[in-house]
């Protein structure tokens, strides 16, 4: 059977945007569950990961088919290559949402600890970065991609803040140690979501103008 590249590119684009919205929903729900201590919602996030894993495999297969049968070049080649990478990054973001959900459930079994403000801010920031990266992907918006790269520094700073908080919190309230570790795990997952969103934003720049901006820090180049 023949294969029409334009049609396949539209299809793979539809698939990656479906994956993107599923992952965004997972992260949204995980963060909401965390802030509202909503166990039912956290469990929904845990069960939602399977769908993302299936989507990842479908997209990978579609890209493989395009490479094998149409030999894309230039902008088409960059797009399919970037989709493969974005697909992988989205799947890992999905895993991190699941981690947040698991730790949220865990937190309710521990001695209670007030969620630090930095964690809430971090959650908002990571969620926004993911949303912006995905909007940049949908609209092939390199300006928005660049702003996502810049936000990553703020998330890193918040995570350092949380480590400092943990250093003080554990000796002061030893009974909360387990909860503090959960909070740190969640912050680690959020920090990874921010990193992976940055990767997606960088791939959008690659799709649009072929520039490789990975491994060159956004803040240094501005």
């Amino acid at each position: 059977m023949g294969i029409d590249l334009i049609h396949e590119l539209i299809e793979v684009r539809r698939m990656i945007m479906t994956m993107a919205s599923s992952v965004e929903r997972q992260v949204d729900r995980a963060v909401t569950a965390l802030i509202n201590k909503d166990i039912a919602l956290a469990r929904l996030v845990q069960s939602g990961d399977d769908e993302i894993n299936h989507l990842e495999l479908d997209i990978e297969n579609e890209c493989l088919r395009i490479f094998a049968l149409t030999h894309p070049v230039a902008g088409d080649l960059r797009f399919v290559m970037a989709v493969l990478r974005i697909n992988n990054n989205l799947e890992r973001i999905g895993d991190k949402a699941k981690t947040i959900a698991k730790r949220t459930i865990d937190l309710t079994d521990c001695a209670p600890v007030a969620l630090p403000k930095a964690l809430v801010e971090m959650a908002d920031e990571a969620r926004k970065m993911l949303g912006d990266a995905l909007r940049a992907l949908a609209n092939e918006d390199t300006e928005l991609s660049r702003s996502v790269r810049l936000s990553d520094d703020r998330v890193d700073a918040l995570q350092r803040e949380l480590f400092n908080w943990a250093h003080k919190e554990i000796p002061a309230h030893v009974e909360s140690t387990h909860a503090v570790i959960d909070v740190l795990s969640i912050s680690r997952a959020l920090e990874r979501i921010a990193d992976l969103s940055t990767n997606i934003a960088e791939d959008v720049i690659f799709i649009v103008d072929g520039s490789v901006v990975r491994h060159s820090r956004a803040s240094r180049t501005h």
Binding site: R146, V212, V213, T221
Partner: peptide, 16 residues
């Protein structure tokens, strides 16, 4: 014809 490059001089885009 190459607006993407023209509009983004601030980003270092060299390949390693």
């Amino acid at each position: 014809a190459t607006p993407m490059h023209a509009s983004s001089p601030e980003i270092v885009v060299k390949r390693p």
